Amino acid sequence: MVPAPIPASETAARPVVPGRRQPDVRLVLGLAVAVAALAAAVVASLAIGARPIPPAEVVGALLGQGTQSVVGIVGELRVNRTVLGLVCGAALGASGALMQAVTRNPIADPGILGINAGAALGVVAGAAVTGGLGLASTVWFALAGAGAASAVILLLSASAMAASSPVRLTLAGVALAAVLSGLSQTFVVLDESILQAYSFWQVGSLTARSVDEVTGVIPLVVAGAVIALLLLRGLDAIALGDDSAVALGVRPGWIRVWSLVAVALLAGTATALAGPISFVGLVVPHLVRGLVGPSLVRVVPLSMVLAPAFLLVADVIGRVIAGGSETAAGVVMAFIGAPLLIVYLAAGRRGGVA
């Protein structure tokens, strides 16, 4: 018997075509927002400062055309800052999202939990050993310091004291950061030759490194980013609980160890480049989750796009708010991020977070 034909009205009413995957509207929208924000931030970073430069002259300066002063400002100073902001922002955004996932703490951040302070201690120790704050001589010390601090935070996050309370883990991280910062100050006091350079570097600025220095350590950031991207599905499984993750074929211990390696590479390199900058890794992942949802497969890559935009905007604000002088990007980020952290903690307290 030949089956009766399906009425055309019923076929037209079917919302999904079998075998065809529907586009994810939130993901497309989130990606569009992040890319547009990054493009706008790059343009602003190149054009806005103590001396505003029209976009047409910016393009000419990038091509080596125009007056010598404009070429010098754009082609050297602002390009250096922009490239540094792109690399450090991507590293801090990814490391913040990873820290929040591994510690199961929504207010985790490499700066708040002491990872950046560990890297900073490594930089100062390296400067004391090598005699200067040059990147080539201190970056490995920064990675060691970030790795050690990451290990401490990972152990604390698994302890009975802090595992059940994001606020307690945050306070423990703040205490760790204070201790490490005190040790850094001790090194500086004992060696006055690095005092001036350290005083400028410790506030977090995008002015300290040239493009050549930045490109020399990009492989470290790329390595950390690749490790992070390879861990994302495992971290999503761990979010369901260790038992569920094991049932899905994931080894939680190894995931956490490699996450520690990725955070150390990302946060340590960013700190060695620009100094300890906090709150980028805290704020941006939350903004991204609001756009694309909680899955780390989406959150981490988009954080690596949106975080550089956030950091570059902070740097641009620092150039123009002081009326001729300059406020470091790390200071601007503190003014932006600290109130947001307070609001989040207050909301969590009302919701029963202890």
Rank of each mutant, 00 (worst) to 15 (best):
L340D: 04
L266A: 01
A197I: 06
G323E: 05
V288N: 04
L29I: 13
R51I: 09
V261Y: 02
L133Y: 01
V263T: 06
P18E: 08
T170D: 01
A346L: 14
G122D: 08
P23V: 07
V42K: 02
A12P: 08
Q196E: 15
P3L: 15
L98T: 04
A91C: 02
R298N: 09
V283C: 09
L266W: 00
S165M: 10
P276Q: 11
G85K: 03
S193P: 14
E57I: 05
S159I: 05
L84A: 13
L287G: 02
V28Q: 11
V189A: 12
A120W: 07
G72W: 00
A177P: 10
D236E: 08
V2P: 14
A347W: 08
A151D: 14
V299P: 11
A108G: 11
G30C: 10
P294C: 08
I342E: 04
S137P: 01
V250P: 10
R319P: 02
D212Y: 04
A37S: 13
A56Q: 08
R233P: 06
R78P: 03
G204W: 01
A90M: 07
T103H: 13
G351L: 11
V28H: 09
L27M: 11
T207F: 02
F187L: 14
A175D: 04
F310E: 05
P55T: 05
Q185T: 14
V226Q: 09
S95M: 02
A237Q: 10
A41D: 01
A329D: 12
L265T: 00
G224V: 05
I321A: 12
S303F: 02
I342A: 15
V246P: 05
V221E: 04
G173F: 12
T186E: 09
I227C: 14
L121G: 03
G348P: 04
A47E: 09
A36M: 11
G66N: 06
L206V: 00
G281D: 05
A40Q: 04
A264P: 00
L180M: 12
G352C: 07
I6W: 10
G323R: 06
V250K: 07
G72A: 14
G19M: 04
R78A: 02
G147W: 07
G60H: 09
S199K: 11
V123K: 04
I53M: 01
P110L: 07
F141L: 11
P339C: 09
I112L: 15
R251N: 15
G337H: 02
M161G: 07
G268T: 03
V28Y: 07
W140D: 07
V25Y: 12
G249F: 11
G275I: 03
N80M: 03
V226D: 05
V217D: 02
A120G: 15
S199Y: 06
G134E: 03
G216D: 12
V79W: 02
A160D: 12
V305A: 10
S259T: 14
A125S: 08
R298W: 05
Q185I: 06
A347V: 10
L340A: 11
A40H: 05
